[in-house]
Amino acid sequence: MSRTIELTTEAAKFAALLQAWGLQPFMIESSPDSRSAAGAVRFGAAAVRAAAFFAFWLMIGGNDLLGLPVGLATAVAASFVSLRLMPPGRAKIRPLSLLALTARFARQSVISGLEVAWRAFDPRLPLNPGFIAYPLRIAPGGGRSAFCAFSSLLPGTLPTGTDAGDALLVHCLDVSRPVSADLAAEESLFMRALGYD
């Protein structure tokens, strides 16, 4: 009996480790039922993040052989800092949806960037600024912050924090544009790409 339990925990551990290494870079699903599995998740997240930071070191450091041990130690330290500040969450990345999100981001950036540029250059200064309240579906926490940061990069919309409820107060240069619909489309895509749905 006890042996079976042991095996199950081991299996959960292994599965969590595999998941962490293979499919879900950066953030991974935590399983609250087993403490050791949670530990494995943590270890897995640490390993994935350390690998990411080491890759970053290689990128900025280039091909300096002597620096590799230093880079490795730094990557471990950075992933320790990262885990302290941001414990492994329940997000998981879906590469295809992420690609779609990136494509939409690029297209929207250029389109609305051109639009803001046109408004700036137009002698009549055609602005219709104001706030709209957009009810957020994504739960409070890291995912919501990430989405707010994402939407604040798109020209035309500027999240200014939430009101008393869960509505995001967005400042727009032109309130007559379909801002809410755009935001809803982006939020769906964002939630799918990062596994918040």
Binding site: R49, F53, F56, W57, I60, G61, D64, G67, V70, G71, T74, A75, A77, A78, S79, V81, S82, L85, M86, P140, G142, R144, S145, A146, C148, A149, S152, G161
Partner: peptide, 24 residues
């Protein structure tokens, strides 16, 4: 939220950049 997000994301990257800067 925005500040927390920045700190969570940037602080570890900054550790790598800072150590790199000392090393090079």
């Amino acid at each position: 939220g925005a500040l927390t997000f920045l700190a969570q994301l940037v602080a570890p990257i900054g550790v790598v950049v800072g150590v790199h800067m000392v090393w090079v």
